[in-house]
Amino acid sequence: MTLRSIARGIVRAPGRLLLLLLKGYQRFISPMTPPTCKFYPSCSQYAVIAVQRHGAIRGTGLAVWRVLRCNPWNLGGVDDVPPARPVHHHHDVAPSTH
């Protein structure tokens, strides 16, 4: 049980670090610049939600793709983070008996 929670903590550490960086940006750097983003939620907020919902790797990927779309040739608008993928089940494997 504890081993599992430690493992979970390690797995989630990169995401935590990213979230810390993002929050730092939102708290201190972003207010220094005029509102810029063409989307709702803003790129940084999108990144926060994406990392929370999809983890560090997928979340970063989604956030990078979003920033790439936030360019002058895009009209912007409302663009939410896609919902989390359902947990993958192996249907062909017999379920373990509890």
Binding site: Y40, V67, N71, L75, G76
Partner: peptide, 20 residues
Amino acid sequence: TMALYREHGTNPFASCLPIL
């Protein structure tokens, strides 16, 4: 507000990419 901009095909904001 953002949905309204989108609907009208207009958006007053710069964008994030050039600044980054």
